[in-house]
Amino acid sequence: MTNRSTLIGALAFLVLAAAAPALPPWLISLATIAFAHALVVLGLVIMWRAGLVSFGQALYYAVGAYCVALVSRFTGITDAFVLIVLGGLAAGLLAVLVGFLLARYREIFFAMLSLAMSMILYGVLVKTEALGSTDGFNVAPATFLGYAPEGAMLNLALFWLVLVLSALAAAAIGVYFRSVAGAIAVPVRDNEIRIEFLGLSVNRLIHLKLVIAGILGGVGGALAAMTISHVDPNMAYWTTSGGFVFVTILAGAGSIAAAFVGSFAFEMLRSIAVALLPGAWQLILGSVLLITILFVPDGLGSLFMRKTRGKEGEPA
């Protein structure tokens, strides 16, 4: 399955990259945000496979976004590559810290504690007038190693950047899923006692998953901040986290590509729903979630994958 899916992924990457200039600008913006969010969702997928659901992934997303916004505001650095690295690092470091606490919890306690962490950040951001309180503040246009595109060209450049980062993240996570630490995800859900008695610390295993997910969340947030050119406390709010969980359920944990497809489908769906029912678009989203859970419990990814797990079925 790996060779074929890598090939399809690479093909999709090239087609999207080549077709981008011909696509309408609204679609480019939507896809950019969708793929930035897909990175956050990949982090959730990593945890989901080990049986953990974070209802506070917006914490890392907002930290990545605010890191970009603050650095460009106070240092004048607008280089996208530097900002993304900083956003990912800031969120990753935070994940290292909160991971010492979170990695000790499971199930609903893990979910609620993650939620609590993100809501603390939300509270801080809302109360900080220097950062614009609930209004947030604008982010200066990104530059790329000295190249400073404007308007439609900037959007296109950001789209290509997101595309490249998505490809890198997908490849890296593919490697991670085949590694000892990455493949031991279903076993964590199955039987922690056995893992401990084989000589591996489950908490450390989960801590690592949290940090990887945190970095992905930060990078996703950094990209989103540059794309929207604005940050506000809603990025840390629990409905944002809920949106990520929604996409995770929609996409399923079975495949990496599904996170991108699922995230794109979600953004499309939301745009259409808002256009159709401006006052009650949540109704449409809710119905879709319901239908997904009832009829495609393993997510969109399960529709593309062969039904039977082959002989090579990975232990994950």
Partner: peptide, 9 residues
């Protein structure tokens, strides 16, 4: 744990 993230299962 970090080494295990780079060792194939």
């Amino acid at each position: 744990i970090l080494r295990r993230a780079f060792t194939p299962l």
